[in-house]
Amino acid sequence: METRRLPVEALVGAALLVAVPFVLPAWMKFIVTLALAKFMAVLAVALFLRANQVTFGHAMFYAVGAYAVGFGAKWFGLRDVALLLPLGALFGAAVAALVGLVMARYREVFFAMLNLAFSMMLYGALLKLYWVTGGTDGLSAGVPTFLGYAPPREYLRDFLYYTSLGVAGLVIYAVYRFLASPLGYYLKAMGENEIRIEYSGESVRHVMYVTYVLSGALAGLGGVLAGFTVGHIVPEYSFWIQSGDFVFVALLGGYGSVVGPLMGSIAFEFIRTYASKYFPNEWQMTLGIIMLAIILFRPGGLWTIYEGLAARFGRREVERA
């Protein structure tokens, strides 16, 4: 496992992330917060990529989390982050537990396309049931409070940022534990050989199901944070393009590790901000070309580029010592 070494890099990375509000301008803070939120959904997608399964529909759980924030504000006046985070995760997991009953039976193209179908059904519902969901206008998130405390306006972004960072830290820890557990290894192993798993007395369907529920919770968490960060929740949260972005980022960052998707998410949000400014109409094409390049030349994503550099750097240090 990759995370066994690297305490130094991990500390440096964490320190950089903690320092963000002090060094970066406000708009960048916003970008990194959003990147942290989406990272959780990306991680959900990356879990399945480890098992060689693609999902073109995980935006649906991201949307479930975000709409939990929207409906919370609209119907119940809820706007506390500490309350809505677990709620969003719970809803994400609950929807995944339901959809997963079907999805755990399918692999590969069926898994990919059925996820797409489910997410597009949700998208259609969010769009068409406008008297409930606000249709294309969407819903507004409440101004967030934190365990009942309403921070002054100028510090709101910082509060959201550190909350996202804290949740991201917890998520990294939890997913790391998950991947190091027997079930996590079975998840990786099933991409290679399902027959051996069944002939070990374990159920591949169970592995898929548990992972699916977990992935729903993760994407739900991301949706809650994104909903609060952007402040506005629209059906596009569940659109296939959003799902495609998650897959793209998982591939970009590298799904072999837990940290890869984090690097990918942050890189992606910055690229997107600039790209939408300078060439708004070629954005998807850019994604497509980068994705092609990664598939054909760098299947491990950014993470392996980093690992390659680290290995070369590390060797030089050893030689020097």
């Binding site: 990529l49 060689n52 399964q53 693609v54 073109f56 590969e108 193209v109 990919a112 991409g191 495609g244 897959v247 591939l251 109409n281 070629e282 954005w283 998807q284 094409m285 994604l287 497509g288 070309i289 994705m291 092609l292 598939i295 299947p299």
Partner: peptide, 19 residues
């Protein structure tokens, strides 16, 4: 891997869409 094949044709899809 089938996942990679899917992602490849998905990339082509994205490129065609913008093209």
């Amino acid at each position: 891997a089938e996942a990679i094949q899917l992602l490849l044709t998905f990339s082509v899809f994205l490129i065609l869409d913008d093209l």
